[in-house]
Nucleic acid binder design. Structure first.
Lengths: 344, 344
DNA sequence: ATTTTTCGTGTTAGCGCTATCATATTGTTC
DNA sequence: GAACAATATGATAGCGCTAACACGAAAAAT
């Protein structure tokens, strides 16, 4: 560790002719500094390419500069994408990320949460679905007064800031695209019942059909669990129906991939005899053949937003924030690939 | 941040009736402490459930307690698995992980490495393939005298510790398993030429055939790049051969998945008319249908080992270590699933 | 013009730990 | 048992930063 190289707060202070404390205030954006001094300091920071020492900061301040990320067990690629995104933005803001997997067991999950709070002393927590909807976890955090951000939560939307995308609208649009391609017999594989997005996507699907005056027979709706396996058995049922659907909308890519497999197994050509669309645009969507038409979720952007919300400190005082500021919706994108096509 | 809760070094010192410095010495395993005092202190540490404050440590010591992880662009699931593994073990050892993606551009990659060294001041670096074989990166690290561990490296094996598995042997065994299932016409899709493991797997494949007196026509060997796409075009060629192989051994799961897709496209049943085996046992292997028979790489264990090697400090002085200590081989496992079967 | 309030800035102490050196306690040699 | 080396422990001073207060200057109120 080369000590000569590092610029310290003192160097910046000397260079701009003020005290260390003033520089500190400028960097932490709290406290009051006149515009003139602030500008002066900022110039010095830039010129010296100063980067604060996270450890010294953490040691001296009441903040830990740690954020926690708690994930459950959705698709691996979803978690890893989110993870990479948040690591990147944490680093940019001088924070560190402590990652923990929530166990299936509620008691263990709560233990993890408490350890993050008491031992690691995180400044805030990011909760991925479906952990973000476990009431006991939310209670623990609220009681401990730890700020947290939830990703695509399902319930109790007023208790914390959250990032999400418009699952309903995306489902509506991708369904409508199938309709525009001439499909009428469209089946749906619902996502995991514990994940709120599943319901929204299902609703979007239904409403798209309704607004186009298309009715859905009940046997066109199958319950899945976001896993390949569940998708496979759902698709098998759909494809063995008397009146086989010409298109399947699966609530995520894993189940869409499974639908394609099921089609292969039954010698049904995709997309000529069956169109399949998924949701999420995980790497899987372009790793199976044919590539899956899907909805791109901006996972990295969601991670960035989640980190930013915590870092900003805007929500540190839970009583002072208005409901309207809690919701942060990011844009999606419909991706047309080879697994869906015009009905012939 | 609740200050009352945390046990400090001082508390441990008081509790065991020695000075802070002695406790520090016990914890850091350097310096000399008598066995009696060490025992006393260790008891106190346990009783008080003491956890050292990483930031204070970092601030006061010459170490940064940061490790860097540099990855390139192999399969997402490989990276994310490794990432999760190393995060876990870093946390357990009180280190933090700084992750950086190596750009395709050499200059940018070197810039990342230098930033990790100079700005973040990492204590050590983990290099994933194929970054672990870029001479300029290795040179930079050697010059800066930063310890690093490489994962499945290809070349210059004497310059740093590394973790790997026996790719050759694993390839040999999974090929032999196909042979034992009655297969004679076995094709191979080679992995990315820049990744050393590709060659080892290819060699293991060849030697398994040779030792069973089976000859391979040259058209049974296709070059791939570890991507689904490259695997698809390779498999297409293999399956359109006059004398079609009855089995394909792909150098990773992505290309095995592609081979299965290609089979579907050509109306070839897997595994009844074509057996396919892969390598890595990433999540993909059990997300396509049929599930892929493959070699399980112990990715998380490799991550753990890599972190441990750096944390141990055994290799901080590059001149003092013997060649024999550098190599760390972990066990693999052959996983038989539904994509391969007895030849009928 | 004086008091009060605000704002902007500097001063001091210390966060929890380790490096460094000083000191105390052994053990070893002749 | 004196003289030395080796080993074991303690005291002190920071690492780079911020909290908490102190203080002067400007603005507002009397």
């Amino acid at each position: 560790m080369n000590k000569e190289l590092k610029t310290r707060l003192q160097d910046v202070a000397k260079h701009s002719g003020v005290s260390m404390m003033t520089v500190s205030r400028v960097l932490n954006k709290n406290g009051m500094v006149s515009d003139k001094t602030r500008a002066k300091v900022q110039v010095a920071v830039k010129e010296l390419n100063y980067r604060p020492n996270v450890s010294a900061r953490r040691l001296a301040s009441s903040k830990s500069f740690f954020l926690g990320l708690l994930y459950d067990n959705p698709s691996t690629s979803y978690v890893s994408q989110f993870l990479l995104g948040s690591l990147k933005f944490c680093r940019a803001s001088g924070y560190h990320l402590v990652v923990d997997e929530a166990d299936n067991d509620l008691a263990k999950t709560l233990k993890s949460v408490k350890e993050l709070i008491n031992i690691t002393q995180v400044d805030g927590l990011i909760l991925l679905p479906p952990v973000c909807d476990i009431p006991e976890v939310l209670d623990t955090l609220t009681t401990a007064n730890i700020p947290f951000v939830r990703v695509s939560p399902n319930s109790q939307l007023h208790i914390s800031p959250y990032v999400c995308m418009d699952d309903y609208q995306a489902a509506f649009e991708i369904t409508e695209q199938l309709i525009n391609q001439g499909h009428i017999n469209i089946a749906h594989i619902i996502g995991h019942p514990d994940v709120g997005a599943s319901r929204l996507r299902y609703q979007g699907f239904l409403d798209a059909l309704r607004s186009n005056k298309i009715s859905v027979p009940p046997e066109y709706i199958e319950q899945g669990y976001f896993t390949y396996k569940s998708g496979l058995s759902a698709a098998q049922k759909l494809l063995s129906l008397e009146n086989r659907p010409s298109a399947i909308f699966a609530s995520n890519d894993d189940m869409a991939a499974a639908s394609i497999s099921a089609a292969h197994m039954n010698n049904i050509q995709v997309p000529s005899a069956l169109s399949v669309v998924g949701f999420d645009d995980t790497s899987l969507a372009s790793t199976v053949w044919p590539h899956i038409s899907t909805v791109r979720q901006p996972i990295q952007e969601m991670a960035k937003m989640a980190v930013e919300l915590l870092v900003s400190g805007k929500f540190d005082d839970p009583t002072s924030t208005k409901k309207s500021d809690l919701r942060h919706v990011l844009d999606f994108e419909i991706i047309q690939r080879e697994s869906s096509a015009e009905l012939r």
